[in-house]
Amino acid sequence: MKKLTLIALLAFFGTANAQTETATTFPTAKGNWIIGGSTNLGFNSNKVTQKSGDYSVDGQKTTTFNVTPTVGYFVIDNLAVGLNLGYEVQKQDASYDFNQTAKVTNTVFSVIPSVTYFIEADSKAFPYISAGAGYAAIKTKVASTETQNDNFFVWGGKAGLAYFITPSIAIDLGLNYQQLSTKYEDTFSTTENKIIFKTLGASIGFNFVL
């Protein structure tokens, strides 16, 4: 009888230990950290809109290059709270002062707190959605002479798929939307002036779970 009781206890604790290990190694389990980085796939479409009161001028759409390191912590299973750091370079022909066209290069640095929810699946593929809002600093160069710096409010979202090739490494494919906007003063006008950057595109990267 004692032997049977001992075997049963060992079986119970062995099962409990296995379940604990499974929960710990589950990629999107509470307490895990997720660190990643992604870049666009060359399909980003960028649109610049300059507004003055009811008057609006759209710049040309163009492709952009960006790199986005991310870090997040799973506060509960499948829900991570984190921070996205962005670096982006945009080059385009755009209207300037409403009556001129010039080569414009924008270099964007952004810091965006975000929330990401992973949809638990039986396979290695985890669909997810993410949203965030934060701050961006843009350095603008018009032609080769004039340079200015602006601060922007930025918000955006992402939907994608994380495919875990191991319990701790995933390939990340996503579709992104991001909008930056700022108001500025014009000494020759009393109307509200605003510049809006809109970016829609696809990205690829890797995620590492710790």
Score class of each variant (00 low, 15 high):
K91G: 05
T190R: 04
I76Q: 03
L10T: 14
L10E: 08
V57G: 05
G157M: 07
I204F: 09
Y73T: 13
F65H: 06
E185A: 07
A133R: 14
Y163H: 10
Y184E: 01
N176Q: 09
V81C: 02
K103C: 02
S181D: 08
A143L: 08
Q60L: 12
L9F: 05
N46S: 07
V57S: 09
S189C: 03
F74M: 04
W155S: 10
N46E: 03
L200K: 11
T49V: 09
Y135T: 15
I7Q: 06
A137I: 14
K183N: 08
K91V: 04
F109E: 00
Q60T: 12
E120S: 15
D77M: 06
V154P: 01
N78A: 04
D58E: 15
N46Q: 05
Y128T: 14
K3V: 06
T5P: 00
T22S: 08
T105I: 11
D93H: 06
T24P: 00
L175G: 12
T39E: 00
A125H: 07
T68M: 12
Y117W: 12
T187D: 04
A23I: 10
T62V: 11
F126R: 15
D77T: 09
L200C: 01
L10F: 15
T101I: 01
S38N: 06
L85T: 01
L6W: 01
V75N: 05
V67I: 15
K124Q: 14
P27L: 08
Y163E: 03
L200Y: 14
F197Y: 14
K30C: 06
D122M: 09
V81R: 03
K91T: 11
T24L: 13
T62Q: 12
I7Y: 02
N32V: 04
T105Y: 02
P27S: 06
K158H: 07
I165P: 04
N207C: 02
V81D: 00
L210S: 06
F208R: 01
D93I: 05
D54L: 14
K124T: 13
E146W: 10
A136R: 10
F118C: 00
N193L: 00
Q100K: 13
Q50Y: 08
S189T: 10
A29H: 09
Q92Y: 13
N193I: 03
I138S: 09
L41T: 09
K91N: 13
T24Y: 09
S189W: 02
G53T: 07
D93L: 09
I204M: 07
K183I: 00
N176C: 03
G37W: 03
A102Q: 06
K30P: 04
A137S: 13
A133N: 14
A133Y: 15
V111C: 01
A162R: 13
K2Q: 06
A16M: 09
A159E: 10
E192A: 06
K194Y: 00
G134I: 13
V89L: 00
G14H: 14
T5I: 13
K158E: 12
L175I: 15
S110G: 05
V111E: 00
Y135A: 11
L79F: 12
L9D: 01
V71F: 07
A137M: 12
Y73C: 04
K158Q: 11
